[in-house]
Design a protein around this nucleic acid. Structure first.
Lengths: 365, 365
DNA sequence: CTAGCTAGTGAATCAATGA
DNA sequence: CTCATTGATTCACTAGCTA
């Protein structure tokens, strides 16, 4: 049996490349497949600049104007690469896939059909997502990762203590808050991004640190510009990258060559916004501490009153807006902290609504 | 055709009950189906107390020791209730489903296969999840909601402004941080929880406020202890609950009867610009706020000027047409909102012509 | 040199209406 | 059905320039 060549990029179709590798030979597969976004026309920002969306040929599956045809084509593609990846994966290895709502439900159902067993789905919550410019939906602020093994009772690697340490002594949760890949980390060619969907290294650090050991072989069937290889090298793991595009390959080679093998844990520790979370006033309504139509009294001597609306804004005799805006307006003041200005009544006593915010903050810990 | 009875619980199998309802009759379906957890033996905490997991009969599908059989049975169940729900949903209605990694990939793929079009997947991040006692995986700290419509180009309700207000003036994102249903909100019978998977009212509050209007009919095919009905009543919506279990039904009835309805309906809705009556620019001339020959200045720094013609069109140095067309043309932009782009002069001050539109709209009330 | 301002950008399924 | 028209709409962060 031929020894497995590692720390290489294999050019070509990923299924063909996978089929040429020995069975049960890699410890981890990390896959960032095309999402099949099925985008329509172009999208403009409010300032009329154009959004540079993903319109690469590799993200088009089947008849884009016919969702069921596009899904069917994407499903075949997915079944093919997942089956091929399953063959090369060791029985105690595990597989990660990342996706968005466009494709992840196809991928998740198919990998379960192929016998994979999901251990966790992990949500990558983005600190700085692109807004929804037309105000038509919720800001699409996350992507989903699936972590699974080849069978329900398979053994697998999970470095529990490393994850706990990374999270200030608390168990690492299934929701990860990380920024997008921007700034100097983002590869550029002629001033434009080399790859439209380059993933942040922090994401791969956490995955590889959690679910592989030093020396393990990590295979990425959609290597792109080599984030997986770069992080694997940094963490003392071996890697194999599969990629069709010559431009991506040469960018990845240059990038990985420049990596020094050091374990830089600082990349992993990202600012934890949960330390003192911002509480919108609407949360007080959602939690049922106050309700639509309830009255608030403003000021020390409760000179002013306002009524709460279902969306968390207030309405007084002459003004409407946020708790801060209405507080400022009724006083004729330039600004106002609504949390300490407004009071609610309970059992004949009055308290500032800040008391409710403190209650909610306490629940978060 | 029989009128639709609302604010009722229909006892029985949800598919049978759905099939007895008229087609295209409900505005929103919220579904919290069984998750098919496929749990193994019992789980003990570090202190050896037993975790009270979900082991109800209604969460067992197919041969629990054979994943592919269990998934196949669950898929049939899912396809059945989703198809039945699709029939009773209005063409402009939308559907929400909540699930975990055990079932949500089955549900998501099947609803796409049935023609539903996903608008967002929303992550409910739990502030107080149960830890992973064995230290074998990431803490399973979230659940996933899918929000979808019946077809890619279907119209739907999304109260963008209300969500933005609820989130202190920032777009509401696809990740929602909310606590589990605990404390006094959690229904108890004989000291034990009445339902193993009661959802927090805060979750339904946000869903109903975002994607329905007051008076809309909301159907919940897995009503349980009636969280959907309770929140619907609070927010001035109508509801229909489907449920098999007599114990859950009586708990839900008592709960919903105790809910106080909002009396002042005006607090339930957030005004938005899209619903304002359309005012042609010519009306500004007809009312005499501006006249033929008057000048307008374009842009923040009033770089451009144009003259008003009697028919409400503008003429600049090089262009003529509507306020929007000339605004776009002088900037060389693909589009322009003329109402906010153009300014008029009054007593030495400049205001956008949108101010005049607001004046006219106020006169209409 | 620093502080402040301006411009740019990220996996995006991104409108409604009337002729 | 298509096509033209109106007019509503953005958050966090980085880089680079200006004062």
């Amino acid at each position: 049996m031929a020894t497995l060549k590692t720390n290489v990029i294999l050019q070509g179709d990923c299924v063909a490349s996978l089929n040429a590798l020995p069975a049960r030979s890699v410890d981890l597969v990390f896959a960032d497949p095309p999402y099949n976004l099925q985008l329509g026309g172009e999208l403009l920002r409010p300032n009329n600049s154009r959004v540079d969306g993903v319109d690469e040929e590799w993200d088009r599956f089947g008849d884009q104007s016919n969702p069921s045809d596009s899904f069917a084509t994407y499903d075949r593609f997915t079944r093919d690469w997942l089956s091929a990846a399953r063959r090369v994966l060791k029985d105690e290895g595990s597989l990660w896939v990342i996706g968005s709502y466009h494709n992840i439900y196809r991928v998740g159902a198919i990998l379960q059909d192929l016998g994979f067993w999901i251990l966790n789905d992990v949500v990558w919550t983005k600190t700085n997502p692109m807004p929804n410019f037309r105000g038509t939906r919720f800001t699409n602020a996350h992507e989903t990762l699936l972590w699974c093994v080849k069978a329900p009772n398979a053994r697998y690697t999970f470095n529990y203590e490393a994850m706990k340490n990374l999270n200030d002594g608390l168990q690492m949760r299934s929701d990860w808050m990380l920024p997008l890949c921007t700034g100097s980390e983002r590869l550029k060619s002629d001033g434009k991004k080399t790859h439209p969907t380059q993933k942040p290294e922090a994401l791969l650090y956490r995955i590889l640190l959690a679910t592989t050991n030093p020396g393990d072989v990590i295979l990425d069937p959609f290597f792109g510009t080599g984030t997986t290889g770069a992080v694997a090298k940094k963490l003392g793991r071996r890697w194999i990258g599969l990629e069709r595009d010559e431009t991506y390959i040469s960018a990845a080679r240059a990038r990985i060559n420049a990596v020094r093998e050091v374990i830089d844990l600082s990349v992993l520790t990202t600012p934890n916004k949960r330390n003192e979370p911002r509480i919108p006033f609407g949360t007080v309504l959602e939690r049922g501490y106050l309700g639509p139509g309830d009255l608030l009294w403003g000021g020390e001597r409760r000179r002013w009153t306002a009524k709460i609306r279902a969306d968390g804004t207030l309405i007084s005799a002459d003004h409407k807006g946020s708790i801060h805006q209405v507080g400022a307006a009724v006083q004729g003041a330039p600004a106002c902290n609504g949390w300490t200005f407004w009071h609610f009544e309970q059992n004949g006593e009055f308290h500032t609504i800040d008391l409710l915010r403190q209650k909610i903050r306490a629940e978060l810990h």
